[in-house]
Design a protein around this nucleic acid. Structure first.
Lengths: 376, 376
DNA sequence: ATCCGCACGTCACCAAGGTCGCGAACCAAA
DNA sequence: TTTGGTTCGCGACCTTGGTGACGTGCGGAT
């Protein structure tokens, strides 16, 4: 236990911490009452003469005064703090949004503090309780927890403005900033189609709602465009590198494998590119890969990943705006903002073998046969 | 401004937030005084009869009572919170340590909150002030800021237990957990030597102390081992992808380029691998690359990166231990823990061309000539 | 019966700072 | 000189929950 009692700090001469000055001490030094100091330091207009203001401010500076957030928050109705509760900071997308929130908050007059709930629903609730107990003026929930559906009632009763980001839920009881997954998948499929791909595979996951949604959208979009999706062209894996690698192997290990794969997540896509490199499968010559998210790593792979970009920065900006505008403060109107993704074309996609050129190139059949031998 | 006044929450029937119950309300419901409720809820032994305890606890449960952290912290001497101030969460190493801290704190009885100072010294000071004003029981500083040397005096007067992590400073006025850079560089150089490399280049940076140190150590170790380091074999760049790419080009663009490169950071190393792929320079056949950090991306490159692993998890564990043991609480003894890195050998390193085999292989000269043409 | 000690509950005060409303001082107009 | 208005500063009280000191009532020992 860390505990710095007055006794301790008195009995030890060196090695002790200086006490932080209080407003009352500033007032004493300035020769005014604590009330007056409070008026000056919290900037209430037309209460204190200019001369007195100066004196108080000088005293505060001299003592290196810093208001006690706890006392201020306890008495007043706000702390000037916003909280972020993150599902798992190691997920790149979550990290990107968190960073944008942390950096953007000062611009709207807040300080931002972040906590991580890992994968534990109980921890999440404890943290939410912590922030809600007047520590923060608002909470941003970034990412989603598996099996958190049961929690929404609690969230709704959080008693504090709340915005959910990177969440797949459609009818949340709190304000939210969402991505138009439909449009994103459509961009990716259109791109692959325009390159000449007809057989497009999909590697996704059923564990997280937001990701699962993309799989559903994928089927819908493909059907929409008159493209056939065989059951074996869609595989669900864990959201991890191993999952991505396994997905690739599964997909290509079957007869008549797709010529292009859409991954639900850049993590999966990067893992697939890596696995392809291990197996000497040429990307994009033998297989085109499209990711989803556009995390920083996506442009560091070889070849750089073509992917659907989520506007992470804008997520943060919009969420912050919802706090300042009060849209997050109402439990009545569950406002949601839906942002549009864009396609970033890099080098992991190309026309399928034999699509446009009919020179001496390998026929798709041959290509398939080669793939099979590489996967065995 | 977000503000939830009582008026607001009363006048609107739906769409308002439920008020959080206070200890006094719990006490009233249980038919006891607030004092008694306090004794029960903060678990003071031998003060309240078992029957009364039960009543209070039941009342608290019924009202869904949650203690107000602000009030508790104001009155008492601790809040049960530890704070992390991060230099820049987007740096992978910083992210890794932060994650470990966030996840590890509950195990030592704390909740962990994180803030990001970006690159701004002023922000850093404000955040430190925030946390020091009794919000947190301790602060972990992760990473370092350029030109923060002037701040150490302020840190020292923080008046709160502080531990610095991932910091290059040697004589910090606060407790710290450091990496044995010397040993790390030595591991990398030894590895390259044992593969047969004699001419080893280095790409580093002078902007951050901790990174700069590695460059100095590199020269020392090389000298130690009787290896010659020409000035052109060491380049300093920005700590960014662009920097890494530029470093590679500089190093190899010169006559008699090195056969292996040690990067001060995995970020630089990954960028170099990427740049090499762009220029069709075969890694490790034409050039061996060793990184430093072992961030998650390091194993996702192709080829996977050989690198010096920093024990990020252990950094966090040790830092937390310094809080609980009180080592962080004293300004007297500036305890520091130095951890040992280990070498992770993956596939970005190999024997140099023509080192061990003298068959029909290309001679080093030829290899150099080819490199030059690839870089033009 | 008296006294002591203990278990149990409560009162009052404390932490730091925000805020209402009073009142002193001052000036101008009546 | 009185009156009214304004400016400026302050006392007192508020937020929530922790804590020392005290009172009450009971049981057992003397």
């Amino acid at each position: 236990m860390i505990r710095i009692t007055n006794e301790e700090s008195r009995e030890s001469d060196a090695g002790s911490f200086a006490r932080v000055p209080t407003q009352a001490e500033v007032a004493r030094l300035a020769g005014v009452s604590q009330t007056t100091a409070s008026y000056v330091l919290s900037g209430v207009p037309n209460r204190v003469s200019f001369a007195t203001q100066e004196r108080v401010l000088r005293a505060a500076e001299q003592l290196n005064y810093q208001p006690n957030l706890l006392a201020r928050g306890l008495r007043g109705s706000s702390t000037g703090l916003l909280g972020v509760i993150v599902r798992d900071i190691s997920a790149a997308a979550v990290g990107a949004v968190s960073r944008a929130l942390l950096h953007g908050a000062p611009q709207v007059g807040y300080d931002m503090i972040l906590t991580d709930a890992a994968d534990d629903v109980k921890t999440l609730l404890r943290l939410a309780g912590l922030m809600k107990s007047r520590l923060c003026d608002g909470i941003a929930l970034v990412g989603e927890l598996p099996e958190e559906d049961a929690l929404w009632d609690d969230y709704a009763r959080l008693g504090i403005p709340t915005v959910a980001i990177l969440h797949g839920g459609q009818n949340l009881p709190v304000a939210s900033v969402l991505l138009d997954n439909d449009h994103g998948i459509r961009l990716a499929v259109d791109h692959l189609r325009s390159l000449g791909h007809e057989r497009i595979g999909y590697v996704g996951s059923n564990l997280l709602r937001g990701v699962m949604q993309r799989g559903e959208v994928f089927r819908a979009v493909m059907k929409d465009k008159g493209l056939n999706v065989r059951p074996t062209d869609v595989v669900n894996v864990e959201l991890s590198r191993e999952g991505g690698a396994a997905g690739l192997v599964q997909l290509l290990g079957r007869p008549h494998p797709p010529t292009a794969v859409l991954a639900a997540t850049d993590l999966l896509a990067c893992a697939m590119i890596h696995e392809a490199a291990c197996r000497k499968i040429a990307i994009p010559e033998q297989l085109s890969i499209v990711g989803f998210d556009d995390v920083p790593e996506a442009s560091l792979t070889w070849p750089p990943l073509t992917t659907v970009r989520q506007p992470f920065e804008e997520f943060a900006v919009r969420a912050l705006a919802m706090f300042t505008s009060g849209a997050a403060s109402s439990t009545r109107a569950h406002r949601q903002v839906i942002l549009q993704p864009e396609l970033v074309i890099r080098e992991s996609t190309a026309a399928p073998r034999g699509a446009n050129e009919h020179l001496g190139a390998m026929s798709p059949r041959d290509s398939n046969r080669r793939l099979h031998s590489q996967l065995s």
